[in-house]
Simulated scan of single mutants.
Amino acid sequence: MSPTPASAAAIPTVTLNNGVLMPQLGFGVFQVPDDETTAAVSAALQAGYRSIDTAVIYGNERGVGRALASSGLAREDLFITTKLWNADQGYEAALRAFDASLERLGLDFVDLYLIHWPAPANDAYLDTWRAFEKLLADGRTRAIGVSNFQPEHVRRLIDNSSTVPAVNQIELHPGLQQRELRAFHARHGIVTEAWSPLAQGALLTHDTVREIAARHGKTPAQAVLRWHLQTGNVVIPKSVTPERIRQNLDVFGFELSGSEMEALAALDSGMRTGPDPDTFN
């Protein structure tokens, strides 16, 4: 494997609020079984991805770890994210869960550690955040953030701690554009990261998406990923098909026009493919 294929060099980075650089395009492994994860992540690394996003609840941290160990890539060239599950929230529980994640990944540190959901009924995310701050101070993670947090959840963290989350990873695609939340992030220096960036395929047959893609000689998925990049989102598409993995990375040689961006912006309908963060525990 080439240590720095051209595609890896082409991926832009965003600067997190603590100065850490994060690739704007990464590879997600949500819903990938552990026994398929190693091959999928290996294919992604070979294609040029350097950012890999997993989570405890995905059950595939070991599969990710196997791919990393066999990749031949230097640790400093990789950006690895994992997430704490709801049942592990709380100060001591979060520290134990982090240790277990590192062991499964086979790593000494991660680049980004996220609270997966606010789980507001449990009311444990403030204590959890204190544990995250300790992990950050101890150098066991290079950045800390959240996932699926609404403005009121993030504001509570900011008001009760000394660390503003570096990232909020949220469901985000043309059908659910989260404008209010993204504006909140921008005001507080928080990077917006999109999960389910293709709405689990629900938007790929939409006439607007197909027409824009055809105009550029690209797939509908490539057109939507390009929309994310031009919007400023960090994006982590998932696939287990090597050809699609490569296609999802081939989104830097074209640009959507202003009118095309507006046409995709008009698809916002509030459509969620996942749970509501205000009620999910």
Rank of each mutant, 00 (worst) to 15 (best):
G232W: 07
D268M: 06
T54W: 05
R244K: 14
W117F: 15
T82H: 07
A131Q: 04
R187M: 13
A10M: 06
V191W: 00
Q178K: 14
G274K: 03
W85F: 13
V164C: 11
W85R: 14
A93I: 00
N248I: 10
Q230W: 10
E211S: 15
S2H: 15
T163H: 11
A213E: 04
H228V: 04
S259A: 15
D138Q: 14
Y113E: 11
P197S: 08
I11A: 02
E133G: 14
G65L: 09
H185C: 05
A214G: 14
E152Q: 15
L25H: 09
T141N: 01
V209K: 04
A39S: 15
R182F: 02
Y113F: 15
G175M: 08
M1C: 01
M271R: 12
G59A: 11
T279A: 09
D138E: 15
A199D: 01
E133F: 12
D127H: 13
T81H: 03
R104H: 11
L135T: 07
F79H: 06
R210M: 09
V235I: 13
V20F: 07
F280T: 03
V224W: 10
A55N: 03
L126D: 00
F109I: 01
R104N: 08
A10F: 02
V32S: 01
P242T: 02
V224L: 11
V164P: 03
L229G: 00
A143P: 05
V235T: 15
S239H: 09
M261Q: 13
S147G: 11
F109M: 10
G65F: 13
D127N: 13
Q31H: 01
Q89F: 03
P12N: 06
T208M: 07
A44T: 03
E92T: 14
G26I: 11
T38W: 01
E255L: 07
V29D: 02
K134C: 00
E260R: 00
P33T: 00
G253C: 02
V14A: 15
D34L: 00
D88N: 14
F79R: 02
K83Y: 13
L136C: 03
T15P: 00
R75V: 01
L176G: 03
Q222E: 08
A67N: 07
T231C: 00
V32G: 01
F109D: 01
L198A: 05
W117N: 06
L84V: 14
R215C: 08
N17S: 15
L126A: 05
H173P: 04
W117R: 05
G201N: 01
V154K: 08
P237M: 12
P174N: 04
L112D: 03
Q178V: 07
W117Q: 05
A265C: 03
T82L: 10
A55L: 02
V20T: 13
E260I: 03
I245R: 12
W117D: 06
P151T: 12
A213N: 06
G48N: 09
R156D: 05
P33M: 02
L45W: 06
P220T: 09
N18Q: 13
R246C: 02
E243H: 13
G106W: 12
L229I: 10
Q177D: 07
A221I: 06
W227Y: 13
E152G: 00
D34T: 10
T38Q: 12
M261F: 08
L114N: 04
G201F: 00
Q200H: 09
